[in-house]
Every structure is written in C-alpha cells, then in structure tokens.
Amino acid sequence: MKILVDITLKSEVLDPQGKAIQHALGALGFDGIDGVRQGKVIELDLAETDRAAAEITAQKMCEKLLANTVIENYTIRPAL
C-alpha cells in the first residue's frame, strides 16, 4: 500500500524558503497572507497491505532517516 509522509519544519524554526514564497505571492498581488511554510511529501510504496503495520514501518523510517526530529515534524497518512 502507499503511505504518504508529510514533513514540515517545527513552528519555532525559521523557514527562509517559506518567507521567500510569501514575498513572491505578495508581489503577485495576493493579499492577506499571514505566513507560508514549505515542507515536503514522501510517497512510500510498501509491499505491506495492513495499514497499521505499514504506518509503524513508516514511523521507524521517519525516526531513522526521513525526518530530522530536531527541526522537523512528520505525519503519516495512507495515500487515497
């Protein structure tokens, strides 16, 4: 089954890329943007068919490699 991992910077970590996107959107005339944060999505195609087991595996992957938990949060969800 396919699992999606969303990785985002923790709220207290400055995100210069998000800031640059926010400025660019403002320059394009989009008003009222209070903040932009950039993250990434990792799509895992796993042989495992049990959702709970697949999510546990994905969590281990996040802790070992996919996320740097000093600065990043991650969430795991099934791909629909």
């Binding site: 970590v13 400055l14 210069p16 890329q17 640059a20 740097n68 000093v70 600065i71």
Partner: peptide, 11 residues
Amino acid sequence: LPGALMRNSGL
C-alpha cells in the same frame, strides 16, 4: 554534534 544547519537566511 548537536543542533541543525538550515538553508542560509539569504537563500
């Protein structure tokens, strides 16, 4: 070593 290294503030 502790901490983290992020994208340069000037990008």
